[in-house]
Structure formats: structure tokens, C-alpha cells
Design a protein around this nucleic acid. Structure first.
Lengths: 156, 156
DNA sequence: ACTACTCGTTGCATAGTACAAGCGGCCGTC
DNA sequence: GACGGCCGCTTGTACTATGCAACGAGTAGT
């Protein structure tokens, strides 16, 4: 990694720069390898399915807002997921404009499969970490993401 | 975040699942916001410029191998960066097949600008962290990325 | 009703990427 | 020193993901 000789060069500055560099590196790698590593489900599709599972069903607009995606993008993704038999659309009894999206059993199964594969990859990478380190790393990530989400005006 | 009651529900399993979830969330957000947050330089362009700065100049093939990109992708990215005046090609005195890529002063400046903007965003998100937490978070990220890179067969 | 807003789809444009073909230079072997 | 094979790079083609704009259909306030 690049150790920056910041204007003041405090330990905080070095840590900050390292975090910046490593997260950038991670983001690039995740993007590059997502397709090859998880051919069954793209990162976005995976996330959308995950949200449907967590939320127990929601509208396409909700997904678009939540993930800062254009509604057309979500529309197309959902269309693909529906063609693949992973989600189904149900009429919204309160609003005929929209549809409520739900996972199908096949969608639930596909999500579980990919989650398990992803989790295995993480498990392998973190195999030799101590319990304390794992717990602290998890806590830091939650904290970081919460701050990032707050600044992005989102809620996840 | 989703707190999973894993099959055995040990603290390690919970931490692992949290790490999985949070890193996935981060990757998705980074991808979605990269274009809007940093219109001057895409994530890949940014990374390529960064590598040129760190390495002090290298060949296109080196970039392709290092970042697991197709050589054609790198070729086009480099062409765009050259058109933008951010990199220049120099003849390799040892091999007329290839070119050595170098940052131009404008490239160095653009990289510094985007780095500064990115760093500011990170700084804001991490503003209220203690020095110990920053240092540990940085250490964890380095450690995680090293493991991920090793499994991906790369070197950064 | 009329207007304004919302939800979703579709047409277009763009960026990023991979794969394959090809061009030209380099380096062995014979 | 010619040749075959490898290497670095570019170009053609196709595909995916994405955004913006326009639109159709439905809802809600007045």
C-alpha cells in the first residue's frame, strides 16, 4: 500500500490513507471479479434478491430508492429475475400502478446458494483470524457503512 | 444489517456473516456511486493512474495482469487517458513492441485531485473514530485484502 | 373533471468489459 | 540469417449494466 507522507503525517493520517487505499482496492476487485466469481447472480441482482428476502416483498421503486439505482435499471433487473423465475410480481391491493415483488421458492433457493458460496469465500479468507479480530472487523465495517450510508442519504 | 442465526450461531459465524453482508453492501455502494461521486475519473481509470504513479511507469500488459483486466480493456482505457492528456506513452528502449506508460503532469494533478476528494469523504465518515480504531481498521483491511488477493492470484 | 404527481416500461445513448483476429517486433533454433 | 513461435498492443464485435428522457397508466387533491 501507499504510505502517504501527509501534511502532518500523524498516525491517524496514515491509517486514513491506508483505509482509503484498501477499500478502493477492494471495491475494484469486487467489481472485476463479481461476474466471474458468481456467474449465477450479479452483484446487483444478488443484492436485490437479498432485499426482497429481508423486506418480505416491496415495490420496484423502493429498491431503486434504497440502492440509488435508476428505476429503469431496476425494472430491467426485475424483468430478468422474473424471466429466470426468481421473483414474481403481485398486484398491490392498494395501488394498481405498482406491483409488489416477492421471491419465488426458486429465488429463495438461488439466493441461499449464492450466499453460501460467497460466505465460503469469506470464510476461507478469514480462516486464520481470531474471534476477537473477526468481531472487531465486523463492528468496524458496520460502523463505517452506517456513516457512509448516512452521508449518501440512504438507509441500509 | 442482517444478523444471521447461523446453523451453529457461534460468535464467529455471526461476525463472518456480518462481514460478508457489510462488504457486499460496500461494494455495491462503491460501484453505484463511483461515477456520480467522481465524474472526473472512473474507478478503474483512477486505479490505473494510481498504479502508474506508484510504479513510476509500466507497460499496458503489466496493468492488465495486475488488475486481472483484458489487455484490450487496458488498451482502450489507456487510449482514453492519453486523449485526456493524463498519461503519455514512451518508447521502451529495450523492446520496441511495447510502450512505457507515464503520468503527465496533468495526470498527476488529476489523480491528486480525485484522491483528495476521496480522502475527504473517508475522513468525514471516520471523523469520530479513535486513533486505535482507525489503526486497527486499517490493519484489518490490509490483512483481508492480502488474503483475498492471494486467493485471486494477484499481487496488490 | 382537471391537474399534478407516481409507478413502471421502453427507446436511446454511453461506459466498461471480454473474446478473437490481426499486426508488428523479439528471440530461439536450425 | 531465415523461420516459427511468442509477446505486446490494437481493433472489430458483442454483450451487460446503467442513466436519462419520453411515455402510458393509475392515483389524489382541488
Amino acid at each position: 500500500m501507499k504510505a502517504v507522507e501527509g501534511s502532518d503525517g500523524t498516525a491517524d493520517e496514515v491509517a486514513l490513507e491506508t483505509i482509503h487505499h484498501e477499500l478502493t482496492s477492494f471495491a475494484r476487485r469486487a467489481r472485476a471479479s463479481a461476474g466471474r466469481m458468481h456467474p449465477e447472480l450479479s452483484l446487483v441482482s444478488y443484492t436485490l434478491l437479498g432485499h426482497l428476502e429481508e423486506s418480505g416483498g416491496c415495490r420496484a421503486t423502493d429498491l431503486a430508492v434504497h440502492y440509488a439505482l435508476d428505476k429503469s435499471t431496476v425494472s430491467r433487473q426485475v424483468t430478468a429475475l422474473e424471466r429466470a423465475g426468481l421473483v414474481e410480481r403481485r398486484a398491490d391491493p392498494d395501488d394498481n400502478r405498482g406491483q409488489l415483488l416477492h421471491l419465488t421458492p426458486a429465488g429463495t433457493a438461488a439466493l441461499a446458494r449464492v450466499t453460501e458460496r460467497r460466505r465460503e469465500a469469506f470464510r476461507a479468507r478469514l480462516a486464520d483470524w481470531s474471534a476477537d479480530d473477526l468481531a472487531r472487523f465486523a463492528e468496524y465495517l458496520v460502523r463505517y457503512n452506517a456513516a457512509a450510508a448516512a452521508r449518501d442519504g440512504r438507509t441500509d
